[in-house]
């Protein structure tokens, strides 16, 4: 009789141990919460080397119902990065970055994500297409200048 009781206690301990060892979430509802805690702004100089705009002045404007209001001001870090928390109910922001006469701005739209997609496309390397285009424009301008100068010369000859 004593042995049967001991076996019963042992079985009870085993059941309790099994219950404790089981994954804790097995009998719970899983809750996953999504929250955007901060928006990242990155500012750098274009033209090939993508040097970060370190210590640049940053102004963040919140756009609510088409009305723009200054939300935050601050400075970019040494990597040209600035982080700010979004406001509840505001999904559109305009970030203005300025440093020693250089100024740039970017629209950040949390619903469309267009601004973020553009921001991820970092410029790299020299703008070869634009450079060649510029030289082409210069050749065209030189041609126009020569036509005008030649016309001026011809008028002078005709006068003489």
């Amino acid at each position: 009789m004593k042995t049967i009781r001991s076996l019963g206690v042992l079985a009870l301990i085993l059941i309790l141990c099994t219950a404790l060892i089981c994954p804790s979430a097995s009998a719970h509802r899983v809750i996953v919460q999504g929250r955007v805690s901060e928006i990242q702004i990155k500012a750098y100089f274009g033209g090939g080397d993508a040097t970060p705009m370190a210590d640049a002045d940053v102004e963040i404007y919140a756009i609510r119902d088409g009305q723009e209001e200054l939300y935050l001001t601050g400075k970019a870090d040494e990597d040209g990065m600035y982080y700010f928390p979004p406001l509840i109910g505001v999904s559109e922001y305009r970030a203005v970055v300025e440093e020693s006469g250089h100024k740039g701005e970017e629209m950040v739209n949390l619903t469309g994500g267009a601004g973020l997609a553009e921001a991820e496309q970092e410029e790299e390397g020299l703008p070869l297409t634009e450079t060649i285009a510029g030289l082409g424009y210069l050749a065209g301008l030189a041609g126009i200048a020569m036509i005008l100068a030649a016309r001026k010369m011809r008028k002078q000859y005709e006068k003489e």
Partner: peptide
Amino acid sequence: IEDVPRLSVITAAVFVVSLVHIQMGPTS
């Protein structure tokens, strides 16, 4: 008229040379 070719070549140099960047501390 004789100034135009020289003007164009030097303008091309001034236009393109701005792409040559040097990183100096926090700025470029």
